[in-house]
């Protein structure tokens, strides 16, 4: 994701928010499917709110072109299903309620409603740190309700390094290029690029493709980096809430510990994986 082909999105800015679940990370397309009938298959749209970045930058969920608009939040851009997005813009109209905070995000290309549920005290603390006029990085899910799109945020972090804004839009361009490029790939090619025998037999195309995206900066699809992510995306593992440990991956791949740990750290820095119940367990950020 950011690392493989796109570089590190957060630069220095993410470090200050390392305690955030998605701090320092990013999301490339996590789910890619054949074009839904309702998607229209149209051109990509924009970078803005709708144009979200999924990490992403922007998966542009454009002005209604291209996206399935039912309330089940199945949005597709260039046949790539969009669920998790990243937006960077100014917070406006923040309204604090008992269980959630609602605001409008204006990224210069458009405005979109964002809602952040405050389930934990950390959520409340995070939302107290951001106010109207602040630039914020929002990671969240793109939803549709009664024909209107909005974002349910997983994390909302104040921008401290304003180069993140530039970087975000450059990343949007990068994601756009990745989405358009990946669209021309055949499913068989995508399956072939994952390294784990037997995996190709499992029809889990979205995650297979996500692996491909994350490895886009590498020349080979079956290098150690991709192998590690393939373990995370194994159908037997991907739904585990707690994730898996480094020891499990070492045992599974039979590769040197140092190599695995180095690759894991890179995936963590890139936001491909994140800690779950403790410092030992990790889960893929591409689980959708």
């Amino acid at each position: 994701m950011y690392g493989g082909g796109g570089g590190h999105y957060d630069g220095g800015g993410g470090a200050a928010n390392a305690n955030s679940l998605f701090g320092g990370g990013g999301f490339m397309p996590s789910q890619s499917t054949a074009a839904p009938e309702s998607s229209g298959g149209g051109s990509l749209s924009k970078v803005g709110p709708e144009r979200a970045d999924a990490a992403a930058a922007h998966r542009e969920a454009d002005h209604g072109r291209g996206a399935a608009s039912d309330d089940k939040s199945n949005f597709a851009i260039n046949s790539v299903e969009v669920s998790t997005i990243r937006l960077v813009g100014r917070m406006l109209g923040k309204v604090e309620r008992v269980t959630d905070v609602a605001f409008i995000l204006d990224d210069g290309t458009g405005k979109i409603d964002v809602n952040r549920w405050e389930n934990e005290s950390s959520d409340t603390k995070e939302m107290a740190d951001v106010n109207d006029g602040n630039y914020v990085i929002v990671n969240g899910g793109l939803k549709g309700f009664q024909g209107k799109r909005h974002v349910v945020a997983y994390s909302v972090r104040r921008v401290t390094n304003f180069n993140d804004i530039t970087h975000h839009f450059l990343h949007c361009i990068y994601v756009h290029l990745e989405l358009t490029k990946s669209n021309s790939r055949l499913p068989s090619q995508i399956n072939a690029s994952t390294g784990i025998p037997g995996h190709a037999n499992q029809v889990r195309l979205p995650n297979n493709q996500a692996t491909t995206f994350s490895a886009s900066g590498n020349t080979a699809g079956n290098d150690v980096s991709s192998l590690v992510m393939s373990v995370f995306h194994d159908p037997a593992i991907i739904d585990r809430e707690d994730g898996i440990t480094v020891a499990y991956i070492i045992d599974r791949l039979k590769l040197p510990e140092e190599v695995i740990k180095e690759v894991m750290q890179k995936h963590i820095d890139d936001g491909n994986i994140y800690n779950t119940i403790d410092d030992l367990h990790y889960r893929s950020a591409m689980n959708g």
Partner: peptide, 27 residues
């Protein structure tokens, strides 16, 4: 908005060019 004294002007300038040329439709 005050972006402070340490902002990468060159990167922003590159973005301006991309956002008004090949990728204008995205912005």
């Amino acid at each position: 908005t005050d972006f402070g004294p340490n902002f990468d002007a060159k990167a922003f300038d590159g973005l301006c060019k991309l956002a008004n040329d090949k990728f204008k439709h995205l912005f």
